[in-house]
Design a protein around this nucleic acid. Structure first.
Length: 122
DNA sequence: AAGATGACTAACT
DNA sequence: AAGTTAGCCATCT
């Protein structure tokens, strides 16, 4: 065994990215999560920036729902007038996510609440 | 090779 | 409410 000392701590960058991608893939349609939460769920607390990096580098083949990740204020982290920003907003609105001005109510569209919404309505 | 950058955030002014 | 600071760390110059 060559890597005798490798515990849960020692991860390669590839492994971290893969975990992040897995979390993002698990965000249900019509829900959003912020970068910090994705990091936490991926076992990488405090590394919100890494999530952005991982999304930027995600293989196209993976077709991640990258648009369901927004910042801690519930806003899209691209300029509103940029092509990417507009695309992200459109994708979200197309699946039922509502904006109050330029921000989403993170509580309301949290995946944790998805079931509540199904049972009780919005 | 060192310094800047950024799809971030929480905690302070 | 809005701006600043410190922590973050792989990438890019």
């Amino acid at each position: 065994m060559v890597r005798a000392n490798q515990g849960a701590e020692a991860q390669t960058q590839e492994e971290r990215f893969r975990r992040i991608w897995e979390v993002v893939e698990g965000i249900p349609e019509g829900c959003v999560l912020n970068y910090g939460e994705v990091a936490r769920l991926a076992g990488l607390p405090g590394r919100a920036r890494l999530v952005g990096r991982a999304l930027a580098r995600a293989p196209k083949k993976r077709a991640l729902p990258w648009h369901r990740v927004v910042n801690a204020q519930g806003q899209i982290s691209f300029a509103a007038d940029s092509a990417r920003g507009q695309r992200q907003r459109k994708l979200l609105e197309a699946e039922g996510v509502e904006f109050d001005g330029d921000a989403i109510d993170l509580d309301r569209f949290n995946p944790e609440r998805a079931l509540d919404r199904l049972l009780w309505g919005p």
